[in-house]
């Protein structure tokens, strides 16, 4: 009886989470360019459209490029910071940890508006690289939190053991710390990559008038009516996220990774 209630409850939650996506998946395979569910006819042409239509393709390329670079920059900022905080006693340096967590904790509009006023004042407004920097700062929280967690899971006596065996600081980092932290670098990168791919407001406020990422493209298209390509892009994004997080779970310890992520304020 209890098990039945639990399963029913989980089913309702699953349905709630999946329903919009099921409908979107349905309309994405409509034959005609109308919004209709259940789908009328079956066609995968709207998925082809993402890659064949130059506008959608450009947006896809822009989004993927932005996500690849900004996630890399976010990791490049987070790794030395997390390492420093783990290796040294410097209570004042925790201020940078706080700064790293702040952009993601505050309402996104605030970071976006800050970036907009900053790039406009500095005179770089609209340049593509400003979006890379803005996203890297906005999402630096994710690799920072996974890496901080990763470092705390490294037994410090491993570092001492390496020193007793003749390794200097640089060698220890290369032969012991880096191999052990690598899974956390990968998952931090993956989180930042997926969220950057989906991010709208910061990208829109920094480069919205000069280039279109996929979320911007969908939103702009939405204002002028409906096209099924939106639906196929949505499904593509959900699938990408699921595959990437699935891989993180396959090669890492997802519950552990989330166990500390959320408790740190996410």
């Amino acid at each position: 009886m209890t098990a039945f209630f639990r399963n029913f409850y989980f089913f309702v939650i699953a349905l709630f989470l999946a329903l919009p996506l099921i409908v979107v998946a349905g309309v994405s395979v409509n034959q005609k360019q109308t919004l209709a569910f259940p789908p009328e006819g079956f066609s995968t042409s709207w998925y082809g459209e993402i890659f064949l239509n130059p506008e959608w393709r450009n947006a896809l390329v822009a989004s993927v490029t932005l996500a690849l670079f900004s996630a890399a920059l976010a990791v490049a900022i987070a790794l030395p910071l997390a390492w420093f905080l783990w290796r040294r006693v410097a209570p004042w340096a925790n201020i940078f940890q706080l700064l790293g967590v702040a952009p993601f904790t505050l309402p996104p509009v605030i970071t976006a508006l800050g970036m907009l006023t900053f790039w406009a004042t500095a005179g770089f407004y609209g340049q593509p690289w400003t979006a890379v920097v803005s996203h890297a700062i906005f999402f630096v929280t994710l690799p920072l939190v996974t890496l901080s967690l990763g470092f705390t899971s490294i037994d410090r006596s491993l570092v001492e053991a390496a020193a007793t065996m003749g390794a200097d600081e640089r060698t220890i980092f290369r032969t012991v710390v880096l191999p052990l932290i690598l899974p956390y670098i990968v998952s931090g990168y993956a989180f930042a990559f997926v969220l950057s791919l989906n991010e709208y407001i910061v990208a829109y406020m920094t480069v919205g008038f000069t280039m279109e990422t996929l979320p911007i493209k969908i939103f702009n298209a939405l204002r002028y009516g409906y096209t099924p390509t939106m639906a196929s892009v949505t499904i593509l994004f959900v699938a990408t996220a699921a595959v990437i997080f699935g891989l993180v779970a396959r090669f890492g310890d997802l519950p552990k990774l989330l166990g500390a992520m959320a408790s740190d304020g996410k």
């Binding site: 919009p20 409908v23 979107v24 997926v194 969220l195 989906n198 969908i218 639906a231």
Partner: peptide, 13 residues
């Protein structure tokens, strides 16, 4: 991780 744009679009559908 879904964009608000996408969530908005999905629910409006």
């Amino acid at each position: 991780s879904l964009s608000e744009v996408i969530i908005g679009f999905a629910w409006s559908t």
